[in-house]
């Protein structure tokens, strides 16, 4: 927990000293590795571990994007705020320390979860770039936003495929009608809409930025809202 607290501090101070974002990421990665070693499994069950992983993924993906944006300080400051907020939320959530049910001990589950959170992180980076576009109107941000969404969409689709394979092996069906699956479909259709809308001039610029921001709000509801409020195979 000390490592997580230190990474939270690093993210906060990254608002003034940007390189501290990298230190925060290293500390958070060390925390995730130590949790994995302690539990003897991939530490990606329950809000505590998954949100820590999400924060680390956002920080990790923001680094390459940080090299491409013109106003790097503003971008990294926004990322620092987001990662610090998620890390704080992770620290406040109860850690899931019990052994995994046998059904979750599979490569397909691990890939499904890792890819899902990596895609969420990229959608988060796209939302940050979208908010920067609204402030600065720099077309570079729009291009980077598209790239983040496209790669995120690819990883999200891959996560759904791995989830389908896992569900087929575990329960004999690749699709289960639960609120989580419906919200996952909403997310997938939403980003399909965004990737297609980009081809129409009317949607470029401000509307595209708003789409990225709203998209991340749907991501957060799909992840946290559905898992906490609705009964499904993905409930916490």
């Amino acid at each position: 927990m000390t490592l997580l607290a230190l990474s939270f501090g690093s993210y906060l101070f990254a608002l003034w000293k940007r390189p501290l974002l990298v230190l925060g990421l290293i500390l958070q990665a060390a925390y995730i590795v130590s949790r994995g070693a302690e539990l003897g499994r991939l530490p990606l069950v329950g809000p505590h571990d998954t949100i820590a992983f999400l924060a680390a993924s956002i920080a990790a993906f923001s680094i390459p994007f940080g090299f491409a944006v013109k106003n790097r300080n503003s971008f990294l400051s926004s990322v620092a705020v987001v990662t610090a907020a998620f890390t704080a939320f992770s620290m406040l959530s109860k850690a899931h320390n019990s052994p995994l049910p046998p059904i979750l001990k599979t490569f397909w589950f691990e890939c499904h979860v890792v890819l899902a959170f990596m895609s969420y992180a990229l959608f988060g980076v796209a939302a940050v770039l979208g908010s920067m576009y609204l402030k600065e109107r720099d077309p570079v941000h729009e291009g980077l936003q598209y790239r983040a969404v496209l790669i995120g969409y690819c990883l999200f689709t891959l996560s759904m495929i791995f989830g389908g394979i896992w569900a087929y092996l575990a329960w004999g069906t690749y699709w289960v009608w639960t609120p989580k699956e419906l919200w996952t479909s909403i997310l997938w259709v939403y980003y399909s809409f965004q990737l297609h809308a980009r081809l129409r001039p009317w949607w470029s610029g401000k509307p595209m930025a708003y789409l990225s921001i709203v998209g991340f709000a749907i991501v957060l509801f799909t992840y946290l809202g559905v898992s906490l409020l609705m009964k499904s195979s993905h409930s916490f």
């Binding site: 689709t157 891959l158 759904m160 495929i161 394979i165």
Partner: peptide
């Protein structure tokens, strides 16, 4: 599964 694989290859 076939559809999923094609989808990913395309992206």
């Amino acid at each position: 599964l076939t559809g999923g694989i094609l989808f990913i290859i395309g992206i």
